[in-house]
Design a protein around this nucleic acid. Structure first.
Length: 110
DNA sequence: TACTTGACATTTT
DNA sequence: AAAAATGCCAAGT
């Protein structure tokens, strides 16, 4: 049963979908939660990350992935994500959302 | 089996 | 701040 792949993929997508608006997470954080390196997360997002808000997933230093820059930028303006002075990156130090410790991601009444 | 690539991360210079 | 080198896990050739 090599289905482990699909489970792993769904796990990643689930976390990415769980990212609240105005916040972002990193490949490393997700990879650490699902139990794999950051590259696998990126790889999964590239294969099955289409139906999820991948723009909320950025590199460890906030810089956007080597593609979709414009698309992500557009989304951040809509979400109100704290972009860095550069404009081509996100203020991870301010809006970093931990997939392993979603203290207040939305959700219930709270 | 070995080499190379990939939506990355960390440390050192 | 930027570049180079190394580590990480998996897939393709």
């Amino acid at each position: 049963m090599v289905r482990a792949d699909e489970e792993y993929v769904e796990r990643v997508l689930s976390l990415v979908e769980a990212v609240p608006r105005g916040r972002v997470t990193t490949y490393g954080a997700i990879g650490d939660v699902v139990g794999s390196g950051p590259r696998l997360v990126g790889n999964v997002l590239a294969r099955h990350g289409a139906p999820v808000p991948w723009w909320r997933v950025v590199r460890a230093d906030g810089s956007l992935p080597p593609s979709h820059h414009d698309e992500a930028r557009q989304a951040y303006r809509e979400e109100g994500t704290p972009l860095r002075r550069s404009g081509a990156a996100v203020d991870v130090a301010a809006c970093f959302w931990d997939p392993a410790d979603p203290t207040y991601p939305a959700g219930h009444d709270g």
